[in-house]
């Protein structure tokens, strides 16, 4: 189920503005890769190019290659809609569909894929909610609106919704930044479980979180205001946090960042 991501010479533009420049990286299957770096360094933009969500902004485009195993996500015949069905995403703020029940939220992706069979849906909803460690809390109120849950539960509901379609890759854009520490811990535990089945890329501002949950870490930085963001260094998390090769990385993770 999990696939490898290979990014080569990737430049990302918003119109004429170059947001990210010259990224080369490999994300191993069944691993957690953390993107860290200061605000505006392009780590979220980089994440969004992995499922072509950055194209929601008019004028956004990329140059370079993003391979999922051997398939170029930016190939001429590739439909971004199809890309997003295999590369799922969880956002910064929990965003369950407010007019839908918990059940329908989880089932929404499957229904988009044309699954109508009630038994199949039931099974998938239960499996996904269990996979997101939410089943015990909501099993007796699946018909309540998704918005009735707490923030942390909503975020786990969003994770259940994302994994219900059994994606190859799961992208998480600062998934805990709107949550309290207890809910954050629940999500981090979940990430550790999910990596057994999925390739996970997580953007985080929280360095401890990156150190706790990820196997590899990529540090992004930008030379200055209006300059494109760059991948400074990518290595095993242990190495990045103990003995990074670049001075800038060390300065950032130790908090001595200019």
């Amino acid at each position: 189920m999990a696939k490898r991501i290979d990014v080569s010479d990737l430049d990302i533009y918003y119109g004429a503005f170059k947001a990210v420049e010259g990224v080369n990286m490999t994300v191993e299957p069944r691993s957690v890769t953390a993107f860290i770096g200061p605000s505006g360094c392009g780590k979220s933009t980089m994440l969004r190019t992995l499922n072509r969500m950055h194209e929601v902004v008019p004028g956004a485009r990329v140059e370079g290659k993003v391979l999922l195993d051997d398939q170029d996500l930016y190939g001429p015949d590739v439909d971004p809609v199809a890309v997003r069905r295999v590369v799922g995403m969880v956002f910064q703020r929990p965003n369950p569909f407010p007019t839908m029940s918990i059940y329908d939220n989880v089932a929404s992706g499957l229904k988009l894929n044309g699954v109508r069979n009630k038994a199949t849906l039931d099974a998938a909803v239960e499996r996904s909610l269990k996979g997101a460690n939410l089943w015990k809390e909501v099993q007796d109120r699946l018909n309540r609106p998704g918005g009735s849950l707490s923030g942390g539960q909503q975020q786990r509901l969003c994770i259940a919704r994302a994994i219900a379609v059994e994606p190859q890759v799961l992208l998480m854009d600062e998934p805990c930044s709107a949550l309290d520490p207890i809910s954050t811990l629940a999500i981090e535990d979940l990430v550790a479980q999910l990596k057994e089945k999925y390739t996970i890329v997580i953007v985080t501002h929280n360095m401890q979180q990156a150190a706790r949950v990820s196997d590899n870490t990529a540090f992004f930085n930008l030379a200055g205001q209006g300059k494109p963001g760059k991948l400074i260094e990518m290595d095993s998390t242990q190495r990045i946090f103990s003995n990074p090769s670049e001075k800038a990385t060390e300065a950032y993770i130790t908090g001595r960042f200019g």
Partner: peptide, 29 residues
Amino acid sequence: APREHKEAALALGATKWEMIRLTVLPYGR
């Protein structure tokens, strides 16, 4: 219609019309 809901739909692999049906129309009802 909130951008975050529209993005949620798109990220699930919704086409534009599916995104509208899932988020914009219920929101605007």
